Computed example of a mutant assay.
Amino acid sequence: LPISGEQVTVRTERGSFVADHVVLACSLATVRRMTITPSMPVPLHAAVHGLGYGTITKTSVQWPHRQWPPGYATTAGRAQRVYEPTMDQPGESGILMAYCGGDGGHQWATMPEPERIALAAAEMTAMHGLALQPLGGYSRAWGAEPRFGGSYAVYEPGQVTAFWQPLREAWGRVHLAGEHVATCTGYMEGALESGETVATRIVAAG
């Protein structure tokens, strides 16, 4: 990503592209692997390479019937938190999701996906007394995804005051976008907010 004067060149495996502005709408884990010249300002480099990320692993299991009460359940088991994301959807079948973070999220990320699904199904069965066989499942360990590096930005002690402003300022003609640079970090709404902020900044720059 060479930056010179009023242009930015992006070099990828698919070719090179020249632009007036570049928006890096991706996780900082991806930005950390980019070769950028000239080097980032020291405060921005520290923020990009130091910001913490959550360890959430989400595991969804589909069941043929909804034999559980509505609401959000917390357990001392390895599933941690279980809820139904399909609560407002019609039909007999439903999905329960295990939402596991912290050290537990790290542990789940080391397991193969089928093992995570089987473990979540077993804990859901015990939690709700289900007399059912699951129809299938899906699990995503965000901390094990190289492109993302974690589930969402987690500002560790001292990082809000040190990193907040550098991440939200344009670096010449390069801009960061994503939930990690929004007011509402961790959510899709924050990612959209950051996109609007960057677009407004670029338009104002002319």
Rank of each mutant, 00 (worst) to 15 (best):
G77Y: 09
E84M: 07
A144W: 05
I36H: 01
P69H: 06
R32Y: 09
L1H: 09
R66T: 14
L96F: 09
C100P: 00
V10G: 11
L24I: 03
D88Y: 15
T9L: 12
Y155A: 11
A47M: 10
V154C: 07
Q7E: 12
A204V: 05
Y99F: 13
T75Y: 03
L96P: 12
F17Y: 12
Q67M: 08
G104K: 00
Y53F: 08
M111Y: 05
P157H: 12
T125E: 11
M188G: 00
Y187L: 13
M188L: 15
P2C: 10
V23Y: 04
T110I: 02
M127E: 10
Y138G: 01
H106P: 00
T30V: 14
G105F: 07
R147L: 15
M111F: 07
A120F: 03
P146H: 11
S39W: 03
P38L: 15
Y152M: 03
H21D: 15
G178Y: 00
A19Y: 00
G5Q: 13
W171T: 13
E189I: 01
H128V: 03
T74F: 02
A144P: 10
A47C: 10
M34W: 15
P114N: 05
G178L: 00
G15E: 05
E84V: 07
R32A: 13
T75L: 12
A25L: 08
H106Q: 13
W68E: 08
G15N: 04
P114S: 06
H45G: 09
M111T: 00
E113P: 04
A121L: 04
G50M: 07
G136V: 11
T35P: 00
S139R: 01
I95R: 11
H45Y: 05
Y155Q: 08
G136T: 08
V82S: 03
H106G: 02
Y187I: 11
V18A: 13
Y187A: 10
E145I: 14
H65C: 10
V18T: 14
Y155C: 06
M124E: 12
Q67G: 14
I56Q: 06
A204E: 12
G5F: 12
L24W: 01
L51G: 03
E6Q: 12
D103K: 09
T74V: 14
A109L: 03
Y99I: 14
F163G: 09
E92L: 02
S4T: 15
S139C: 05
A141H: 01
